[in-house]
Design a protein around this nucleic acid. Structure first.
Lengths: 132, 132
DNA sequence: GTCTTATTGAGAATGTTTGTCAATAAGCCC
DNA sequence: GGGCTTATTGACAAACATTCTCAATAAGAC
């Protein structure tokens, strides 16, 4: 009762492995894909652990998440600064885009209509030069 | 072989019912919600039919679709012209937004990086005046 | 009315994601 | 190093939305 101890995360080899694998991936990958990759490399990590770790990374701002067309969630390692993505529909190649103008525009539109706590979802898709 | 007959859609009471119910809904609704609403009104429509009809409407441009946080797809009746949405996270109230500038910006960003066939996903969320 | 075939509805099947829970091991104090 | 507490793990089951299957129905055309 005397020790709330709310925020005590532990460092485990599993978390490190997920983080590393996410860093190796070029574009966005699903939890399932990442789990398969890890197992192919000899890891015995559980699927649930991959899901949990990715969700934690997303909350911590160390990964971006995105909904694919097939209703699965895709993750990608990223810098902590806010940005958007230009994604190839063919190969998944992803470029980060800075768009300060856009941020301001979105926030302004929300405020003009009386909406508070604005947030937005902006992603651009296309076919990259290599895939054409 | 002599009759391709690829595009022969039939008009059924079920399709009309889904279309009507979608029009009645204020904001975005899921296929499950719509199915429930229809059943509550006495319809015996099947869940699969609701899904199929909504998918058709989305393809035909008569409905907008959107991925919610809970990984379900939400639909909304709309005009055929291209637009985006400002959505209340609390009550689901939805306003349509015209943003020609934005369209051009998105297409330009894609072309600058060598991407063809650009498309984009832009939605703004917030808490509407009534919900604050 | 008859015929063709798109459509329907009930349930099974799929696939992702989350929950459960006993077993394990990370961090800490001695 | 040894022991303790408890966050974490992994295997599996469960929840969930969505799609598939297929016999039965009915829309549209003649």
């Amino acid at each position: 009762m005397t020790t709330p101890k709310t925020g005590s995360k532990r460092n485990t080899p599993q978390k490190a492995a997920v983080k590393h694998a996410l860093g190796e991936a070029k574009g966005f990958v699903s939890a399932q894909q990442l789990h398969q990759t890890l197992k192919n490399h000899g890891s015995t990590i559980g699927l649930a652990t991959v899901y949990r770790t990715l969700a934690d990374l997303a909350v911590a701002g160390e990964a971006d998440s995105l909904q694919s067309k097939d209703s699965e969630v895709l993750y990608r390692a990223c810098t902590t600064s806010h940005h958007h993505h230009l994604i190839c529909r063919e190969c998944g190649l992803t470029l980060e885009i800075e768009a300060e103008k856009l941020e301001k525009w979105a926030d302004q539109v929300a405020k003009e209509r009386g909406f508070s706590q604005p947030s937005h979802n902006i992603d651009i898709f296309g076919i990259c030069a290599a895939c054409q």
